[in-house]
Design a protein around this nucleic acid. Structure first.
Length: 544
RNA sequence: GGCGCGUUGGAGAAACGGUUAACUCACCAGCCUUUCACGCUGGCAUUCAUGGGUUCGAAUCCCAUACGCGUCACCA
């Protein structure tokens, strides 16, 4: 068989040979240790946690080493493509503080190793494919879907390995004349790799996360180019990551199974393989089954969920870093003030078993993150979130001074309050400061009669020019007058002597003022609300 | 079915042949406290999926078994 002749038959329009592209995309001039990484999402319109998870790894690896982190759009499957998906992805990544050095942008791209959208790289792939045909490593296959299905059924029946290989590879040894006739008749065909592999052979492949892997040699004549001339993932990955100079390929462990194909392609093309980093899947407990997070069942898989709930990008980053690198938490304890970008991230510290996603832990981290922020920063974050998700509340926030006064309650001191988890929850938590959102949510700790007694006396005694101590002295006075123990302990010792303790008294006032039993400092709330509104709330509570 | 990857407490995990098996979250108890959120103290695996080996010594090495996950497309 004259492979050159076959190559011309198949790719008459391809002018440039691979060498042309090698020169067009020369090796990057970077420091020896610099890593070049990328993410390669397909534009399905759904941005999930896993995208961020892998993006963070790639971003850290690159930017910790003065390397390059880029975005490549893997749009080889036009069936799955959704309009606007790139914009959605870019917005999400930007929102979570992931920045690319080069690659696709909303209206084009930056960087000199493009195009960064695979569909636009068709000629590049075909040039390499042509070369492969010339070398005798690729051939056209005219098998139809039906034929392939029939083949698979036979393989199942015979308990044989699935796939297109060996004696099953019907088109592998077709003679030139037959090929020419069918091509010229316009029959659709795919281009398959002619594998030289022997499944008995295994070769060592290094994985930055998993250590040395023993990889079985690929023996499948897998598809390189689909019938529309667009490459499959396998071929595109190898060509792109070679030409774009990727040094570290970060991807999910679902790719482990096809690693033999990729390795074989790199080897036959004589290209240096990148260092693979196969990440573990994010899992979730469903009942008592540990399973992969799924798009349909788990809202928390979508990045949009975290934005809608108002989790801070910083909190999500810190959470993901704790999952990614087991030593992150200790580092955080040792460096409480440091920014997480200063953390020395490493692939060796990554686990290779699937981690369960733990929303509670995210909440805990998130609390710390918000607690460490200034009232001003919290205000900005809250306002930004509310403008998008709760415009009514955003309008209330227009009174900046009041909002800052509210947010400053409990700030400062050795033990600043830690009760804001995310913006959505914060809006709820802070809503009682605004009459428009105020409502009694909790039960009063006292019955109506006792409540009236306490509150009416409170109204008589309260003086808004009092300081905290003077004010509290009056609360104590009510306790004494109405036989509530001044110390909860005393009440606990002899409950029969009292109607209750100061807890009931102060919480009666608290519920009247804030609508619930859990709130920041009561006197500060009272001061912030002001005399008129405070009195109004107390009066209203006596009537309810 | 073949192949691959994995399995340490409720969750994330450390440990790289020799420790009382770190640490964080959750949980429980106590302290602090006018509530809650915090904070503090203590508790929470005699045991590292199971069974065999190797070794003076194993969570760590080897071999089986079980279970979980992934993958076997002209999807990525």
């Amino acid at each position: 068989m004259d492979y050159n002749r076959l190559a011309e038959l198949l790719f008459p329009h391809i002018q440039h040979d691979p060498q042309y592209y090698e020169e067009l995309f020369p090796r990057r001039e970077l420091p020896a240790e610099a890593k070049v990484t990328r993410i390669g999402p397909s534009p399905t319109g759904f941005v999930h946690l896993g995208n961020l998870y892998n993006a963070i790894i790639g971003e850290r690896l690159a930017h910790q080493s003065q390397g390059v982190f880029f975005l490549r759009i893997e749009d080889t499957d036009n069936k799955r493509e959704v309009p606007g998906a790139v914009e959605t992805l870019l917005a999400a990544m930007d929102g979570f503080g992931v920045h690319f050095d080069e690659g696709a942008t909303i209206d084009g791209e930056t960087g000199s190793y493009g195009p960064y959208r695979q569909r636009q790289r068709k000629e590049i792939y075909q040039s390499i494919a042509k070369k492969l045909v010339q070398m005798g490593y690729a051939y056209p296959c005219f098998c139809t879907e039906d034929q392939l299905n029939a083949m698979r059924e036979q393989q199942i029946a015979g308990k044989l390995n699935f796939g297109y290989y060996g004696q099953w590879a019907a088109c592998r040894d077709m003679d030139y004349e037959s090929i020419e006739a069918r091509v010229q008749a316009g029959e659709p065909y795919v281009l398959r790799f002619r594998s030289q592999g022997d499944p008995e052979n295994f070769l060592p492949v290094m994985d930055a996360i998993r250590g040395e892997l023993s990889v079985q040699e690929n023996y499948q004549d897998f598809v390189l180019l689909k019938s529309d001339g667009i490459p499959t993932y396998h071929f595109a990955h190898v060509v792109d990551d070679h030409l774009m100079g990727t040094t570290h390929v970060v991807r999910g462990e679902e790719w482990l199974a096809t690693l033999p194909m990729h390795v074989q392609l790199f080897d036959t093309l004589g290209w240096q393989r990148p260092l693979y980093c196969h990440t573990a899947q994010l899992m979730k407990i469903d009942g008592d089954v540990k399973r992969k997070l799924s798009k349909r069942k788990d809202p928390e898989l979508a990045l949009e969920y975290y934005q809608a709930e108002g989790y801070l990008p910083d909190a999500v980053w810190e959470y993901l870093l704790t999952v990614l690198n087991s030593n992150y938490e200790q580092w955080r304890i040792d460096n409480p003030e440091a920014h997480y970008m200063e953390f020395p991230f490493s692939t060796e510290k990554m686990s290779n078993s699937g981690a369960l996603f733990d929303l509670e832990k995210l909440e805990n981290i998130s609390k710390d993150v918000i607690c460490a922020m200034s009232a001003e920063a919290i205000y900005e974050g809250l306002l930004g979130w509310a403008e998008r998700y709760d415009t009514e509340f955003a309008a209330l926030l227009a009174d900046r001074d009041y909002a800052l006064a509210v947010l400053n309650i409990g700030k400062g001191g050795d033990r600043p309050r830690k009760d804001l988890v995310n913006w959505k929850q914060a809006v709820d938590f802070l809503s009682f400061y605004y009459d428009q959102r105020f409502r009694i949510e909790d039960e009063f700790p006292t019955d109506l009669e006792a409540r009236k007694e306490i509150l009416s006396r409170y109204l008589e005694l309260i003086d808004f020019s009092d300081d905290n101590d003077a004010w509290f002295a009056k609360v104590k006075q009510i306790c004494e007058e109405q036989n509530y123990a001044l110390q909860p302990k005393k009440y606990k010792k002899n409950p029969e002597l009292y109607r209750g303790s100061i807890v009931e008294v102060s919480n009666t006032i608290r519920v009247a003022m804030s609508g619930r039993q859990n709130s920041p400092d009561l006197w500060q709330i009272t001061q912030t609300l002001g005399e008129e509104r405070s009195r109004a709330r107390i009066r209203a509570a006596m009537e309810a």
